[in-house]
Write a protein that binds this DNA or RNA. Structure first.
Lengths: 233, 233
DNA sequence: CACGCTCTTACACTACGTGCAACTTTGCAC
DNA sequence: GTGCAAAGTTGCACGTAGTGTAAGAGCGTG
């Protein structure tokens, strides 16, 4: 589950308690997703989720602070994964390239599938917007933390704006790429579709790197740039 | 209502009803702000706001969907103002310059004062985060709409990413600039402080225009760029 | 087994947000 | 002014969210 990476996983000691917690947590999100599929966003209560997951309403709130939060755990899992990928990149690498590389690892069926489903199910519902925005913002903070480490910012100095703006823009562009992808391909997880997602992410990061002025939209050169400045290769 | 500008002001016909509504609305936000000052974020209820504003609880909810929403009206007013400034810019002007110019108009005591107070009062409280994020995202959508009009995007075309990423990044950078400013100067509204805010906004937009790669943070040239590519000159 | 610790559960309580049906105010025509 | 319709306000009731609390069940350990 989420175990192996973000939470838990105390290296060989998955005690009974931890297993139970992880199981209930999973049961809750599963139940929430099932209800979302069945009834649509906003048409079910915390009690229904709890019942469906075989726990009490109170226990549900011990795990998640709201029904939205239960659903947003999908988004959180995805974004936490992204942050983890980001932290794996070498510290010397330019932050934007690290971001791009980290995002590449996420254009993967197993990673995006839950997110894609959640997105299609809640597409035009403002109910999800709240918690989803929070998830992205949480991710932004993480990116900010990573960027701050790597840019070696002087505490009260002038780099603060750079790092803040960079973190926010990276998130915004990642979001934009995913949004465009969803609007184009829906929940299509085929190889070509994922390739397009990758290209969108690359293009978005390239925009950030080269600047929004460097692109003349009037000219015919509007096609996706062919992998500008390959990060790994 | 939303027609001519943002709210009310139907050009010479502020009927009694509209005046009353505006007055109650104002009374509510005033009461909410007063309670925020007095009790701190999250320590007062919708009923208290209503009582303090001299209306019933039910009426409060006719105006705002939550206590947070009442407070966030300050943010909304500020951001709506920004959008309005943005729309006033000539359509031929590059979007980034328009954004920069629009933001300049907001680095003004009367505009930022309420925002600054709200910010200082809710600084380290996650309670406000929700609605505030929504306000910024709402603003992002507006910027997106404006940008879409001006970039003349082909419907299913490749410009969609550009516009989405641009809108999101503009918001992120504006947010970053304000955040840095607040963290440096608190609620200082002096002329120098506002000048610094303006410079931060200019720098943030310049980053977006020139790209985050164009800045080598190791070099000594880390000072604020001296108004790069003046928008109005 | 018995003892601590952690987690779950039931219950109670406050507050939120909304539908509804009076009631009051405003706008408008006569 | 009077009458009337539309818009706005209010009280009431209802379901739900989220939290404190205390008792109980499950787990880990000696």
């Amino acid at each position: 589950m989420i175990a192996s990476s973000s939470t838990a996983y105390t290296a060989g000691a998955p005690s009974r308690r931890e297993l139970n917690k992880a199981a209930t947590r999973q049961a809750i999100t599963d139940a929430a997703l099932a209800l979302l599929r069945a009834k649509g966003p906003g048409n079910f209560t915390a009690e229904e989720i709890a019942d469906s997951a075989g726990i009490s309403r109170r226990t549900f709130f011990n795990y998640f602070s709201s029904t939205d939060a239960a659903l947003a755990s999908v988004v959180h899992a995805f974004l936490d994964n992204a942050i983890q990928q980001l932290r794996l990149r070498p510290a010397e690498e330019p932050v934007l390239e690290s971001a791009q590389a980290a995002l590449m690892a996420l254009a993967d069926p197993k990673a995006v599938a839950p997110l894609a489903e959640l997105f299609t199910l809640t597409q035009h519902s403002p109910l999800m917007a709240n918690t989803e925005l929070q998830a992205w913002d949480h991710c932004r903070e993480q990116v900010f933390a990573v960027a701050r480490e790597r840019v070696a910012v002087t505490p009260g100095g002038e780099d603060e704006l750079y790092v803040q703006a960079l973190a926010g823009s990276v998130i915004s562009c990642g979001k934009a790429a995913m949004q465009v992808w969803f609007s184009r391909r829906g929940a299509d997880l085929s190889a070509e579709s994922l390739a397009e997602l990758r290209q969108l992410l690359i293009d978005a990061m390239a925009l950030l790197g080269a600047g929004f002025n460097s692109r003349r939209h009037a000219g015919g050169a509007g096609r996706s740039s062919p992998a500008p400045a390959g990060p790994a290769s």
